[in-house]
Write a protein that binds this DNA or RNA. Structure first.
Lengths: 129, 129
DNA sequence: ACCCACATACGAAAGTTTTCGTTGACCATA
DNA sequence: TATGGTCAACGAAAACTTTCGTATGTGGGT
């Protein structure tokens, strides 16, 4: 049977993934401690979520140590692109341009930001040639 | 009491909102017929969702006709910006630039798209001056 | 050998989202 | 005035998400 593509992470799952991206492979304790700074959540809640994420294939688990070590299965950028693509389909009728335009108009991008983005456009046109 | 901000629409709710944006004020029947083209869903399912959306304040309902007429309470662009802002917080650490860059690199934007976006950048720098 | 701190596993409850069957009202028209 | 088609209302089930209490195991220090 064909492996299903990894499902879209839920809100709580995404907050855990962000920790894994930031810290690299981590134990439940480490993730929980970091999340606790900004968010109230019990240890077992985080544990349970990470177990579910393992079942879903969102993370890998290394059980060789007593405290299992979890790793995000998909990289940060890949997940971000997946989420963007999903939102593009669901809210922007599949138009990436509309999405970018809205993101730009809603953002308080600095002059430097605009320059960076402009360079990115240059690069894309370059590549297209 | 302060009105709560309208909650983030769920997936199914968003698909209904998109129909309302496209068609303008519509009855449940009209929304259902359109959704049925691309998606399997019972009539009463759509009805129930639209009733819930009324409770949540996502849509307004005109009950003067037998078939109630629903209208999206927030405009398409405003909702899109809300969703983008939400995703930016949850997945991009609050950085709009990162979001735009990812969206660009993931999109198969055409040459015309790039031109449009470039004009938008021009406009933004113009305004900033 | 005995605790104790800390780890996973399990299961259930609470909350939310999505689904739809059933009911009763309304209206056209035969 | 009966019949059939369309509608909103309601409630409940199913699916998914989030929460956490409790049980149980394990390893290290004393």
């Amino acid at each position: 049977m064909a492996d299903k593509p990894t499902p879209r992470p839920t809100d709580a799952e995404l907050s855990i993934l962000r920790v894994l991206w930031e810290r690299g492979p981590s134990t439940v304790r480490e993730v929980h401690d970091l999340l606790s700074l900004s968010h109230d959540s019990g240890y077992t809640t985080v544990l349970k979520l990470m177990q579910i994420m393992t079942d879903k294939g969102l993370v890998d688990r290394d059980e060789s140590q007593r405290a299992h070590v979890y790793t995000s299965r998909l990289g940060e950028q890949r997940t971000q692109r997946q989420l963007l693509g999903d939102l593009m389909e669901r809210a922007f009728g599949g138009s990436p341009t509309k999405l970018v335009m809205q993101a730009l108009s809603a953002s308080k991008a600095s002059a430097e930001d605009l320059t960076v983005i402009r360079r990115m456009l240059d690069q894309m046109e370059e590549d297209a040639r």
